[in-house]
Design a protein around this nucleic acid. Structure first.
Length: 289
DNA sequence: AAAGTCTGCAACCGCTTTCTT
DNA sequence: CAAGAAAGCGGTTGCAGACTT
């Protein structure tokens, strides 16, 4: 694993993977002088590296408080939950996971969690179910797992059931579901946008309330605008975010709703995370950041 | 067994924010 | 207050090893 073999930049500074000798020099120097002043550190420590590279090596790898190895279930839960609130703010997430670096969390997200969410039919950007990426049996599974009766119009689920048991025309169904959702009053009192892109059925209220198709790449990272996540009055985000996670953090637990017989272990974990984390209506993203 | 492909992750890049003078 | 330096951050790259054909 790692980077290209030894390369030198135009200033003659070494790039690429660190050797044990370099690690030892850096560690020893910081042990004596402490971290900081990264510009002069390489010279003082006898390293032919740029300060930035030294800082990165220290913060991401050599720091003594870094926890290495597999992410625990609780850590993974926390990452998913926090990501649903702050998006790709890896440093903010890392601040709540003692011993984990933002880089490590980012990598873990991109290589493990993101894929698993996609596989489970959940959009890793919005944390909403993606009906366009699910077969209908998955939709039904998903609704059971998430206790989605509160999120999705029962008629939609009924339609999905019907279609799952027959081979009806899927396009017609989606069109019908669209219309159904449009008329559906949301549990928090708001209404569906008048025209919702059919491929974003569960992201309501839609990020684009004008009813135009929404390019998910242009969407902001999952702001707490109820993209399929409903507010909970008794949820206190501050208490969650201000508490570094040293033990399992039971948020707003509804994990008992998870149907243990209807999905894989991985899927259950993912759905469990999705169902446990709820955002208060009064949540202010700016305050958190 | 060899070749090709996929995966994981350390490290780099470049932009933004914060600090210092 | 402005400018430059330092630090922070998120996105991306590219290699080694694992896996598949």
């Amino acid at each position: 694993m790692g980077r290209s073999p030894i390369l030198n930049d135009k200033n003659g500074l070494k790039k690429g993977p660190w050797t044990q000798e370099e690690d030892a020099k850096l560690t020893e120097y910081i042990r004596i002088h402490g971290p900081g002043n990264w510009r002069t550190l390489p010279t003082n420590a006898g390293l032919n590296r740029c300060g930035k590279s030294c800082r990165l090596r220290w913060t991401n790898y050599l720091r003594p408080d870094i926890k290495r190895g597999r992410f625990s279930f609780e850590e993974e839960e926390t990452i998913i939950q926090l990501h649903s609130v702050v998006g790709n703010k890896w440093s903010a997430i890392a601040a709540r996971l003692p011993g984990r670096t933002d880089n490590e969390i980012k990598n873990y997200w991109n290589t493990h969690i993101r894929k698993r969410l996609l596989k489970s039919g959940i959009d890793p950007v919005t944390h909403s179910p993606r009906l366009d990426h699910l077969d209908l049996s998955s939709i039904l599974n998903l609704s059971n797992l998430l206790n989605l009766q509160t999120l999705v119009n029962p008629e939609v689920l009924k339609l999905a059931t019907l279609l799952a048991s027959s081979s009806s025309n899927q396009e017609n169904l989606m069109s019908h579901m669209d219309q159904t959702l449009t008329n559906h009053q949301l549990p928090n009192g708001t209404s569906m946008p008048t025209s919702l892109p059919s491929n974003h059925l569960c992201q309501y209220p839609s990020p684009n309330m004008n009813g135009q198709a929404v390019d998910e790449n242009l969407m902001p990272p999952c702001l707490p605008d109820n993209h399929g996540i409903l507010p909970s009055q008794d949820f206190n985000l501050d208490s969650v975010l201000s508490t570094p996670m040293s033990s399992p953090t039971p948020l707003n637990s509804s994990s008992t709703l998870v149907n243990s017989s209807s999905s894989t272990e991985d899927d259950r974990e993912t759905y469990c995370s999705m169902s446990k984390f709820e955002i208060p209506e009064s949540f202010e993203f700016d305050d958190f950041m």
